[in-house]
Design a protein around this nucleic acid. Sequence first.
RNA 1: CGGGGCGUAGCGCAGACUGGUAGCGCGUUUGCUUGGGGUGCAAAAGGUCCCGGGUUCAAAUCCCGGCGCCCCGACCA
Length: 520
Amino acid sequence: MSSQQNQKQQPATAADGITPRAQDYGQWYLDIVKRADLADHSSVRGCMVIKPHGYAIWEKLQRELDERFKATGHVNAYFPLFIPLSFFQKEEEHAAGFAKECAVVTHHRLKAVDGVVGVDPDSKLEEPLVVRPTSETIIWAQYKNWIQSYRDLPLLINQWANVVRWEMRTRLFLRTAEFLWQEGHTAHATEEEAREEVSRMLEVYADVAENVMGVPVVRGHKTEGERFAGALDTQSIEGMMQDGKALQMGTSHYLGQNFAKSADVKFLNKDGQLEYVHATSWGVSTRLIGALIMTHSDDNGLILPPKLAPIQVVIVPIYKTPEEQERTTAEAQAVAAELRRQGLSVKVDDREGMQPGAKYYEWERKGVPVRLEIGPRDLEKGSLCVVRRFVIEQDGESEQDLRKRKKQFLPRAEAIAGMTALMGTLQKDLLERARIQKQKKTRMIDTLEEYEEFFKGGGGFAWVHWAGTRDDEDTMAKRFETSIRCIPFADQIPEEGRGEGLCILTGKPSAQRVLMAKAY
RNA sequence: CGGGGCGUAGCGCAGACUGGUAGCGCGUUUGCUUGGGGUGCAAAAGGUCCCGGGUUCAAAUCCCGGCGCCCCGACCA
């Protein structure tokens, strides 16, 4: 709780209480989460409380994802939190993969002994229940009853749920013991169809990442070692955070017939023969909020894309006299009403006894994309002061110039009529800004010397030719703390890096480059 | 599991070495003042000093035991 000694040395600036990125990226991240009111540590180790502002962002993300799931033919359902241990044991590889991070329920009752309530030893469960770290096993036990014929396929179900993974080390949003997510679980008649589903859903994730979150991603396959436990193929989208590290933002798995076999799910095909179904699963979690923060935010606080901002426009009335207060506040309400008619979410900050500057800082910290200032002079001139939360930085630009470029005085009607368009601009600019950031930290690298130098410096995404074994991957991990984030789809490799080459480590021929980076 | 830090007002912290009326800043409430980038003044409210035991006339402070959280490392969708 009290590890922010560095706050004491901080000057009282806009970023008061936020450690600059350049000084300590990890602390900066924690400060943003806290100062933007997204989440709190709870009194349970590794668990977090998602506060209203953070949860509102999650709700918007949910809506965007859910719409796309529905549009691709999926329906929602809900399966139990508890999984009988025996279900879990059925798929060996899967069980082994999650074994080390499972919470297990062993008793079902408490009892007061000498006035102290504790676990009643007489209430031991005959079979322990695993708190789901993911739901494949319990869902497939159910699918067995739902699937008999090819007419029952494909079965396309998604669930929104919480899961528990008893991680040794946790970080707010990025890795917590309990988190919120969605998990799609589908059953198909053929491998081809299932693999199509895997790709389709990965593309849904990529679409949300780029066009909703404004985070450019690389699409690709995971290596054997990084695959989901029990999957034949794991595809992922990988984003680059501002410190150059990669963050896995979503995964989509082809599970083959593994789960169908372990749960004995067969269907009668058109030829009247019994076959095992082919399975997929795919998921994204509240980790995406971590990605959002680490991609866009700055030393002044959170930056949100308009599509995910719980408040898109905040209006601050400025006044000296009660009469001015009344007029500017009325105008603020009038402008808000007009903007709401465009479907925008608008907040009028009419709190009294708080200076405008204090309000500016607060809403900046919370990431509101646009602020309108309305003062007596605007009433006279019929203008509005429109301030953007961010603009795309130019090299060598001063803080002052940056601030100037964010601020615009526009005729009232023009400002209002253009607000929806401005949201669109900001949405695009944010993605563009993230692309520039990413590009600056991306290199085609062909020698180990250059590779080492790259990661000793700022690091980032390294596109390298690779033909190594799993042992060779370990070598790279030990030497450079990097790993293969994905084996990208061919069109994901930057043009200048396409084609064949020689493995950076072994010198053997390589068909294409892979994405190497340090990872969260 | 190893290393480190911390637990005192809503939040951030001081006080502890050297035991003796529970403190500061921010926030909150009230009043005035101020208001285009964190106004200023005054007054007020607010405490199980993490828990248990011990030493003592007296414990936030010393001793013993416990609990919890955070950070770093190992581990990992």
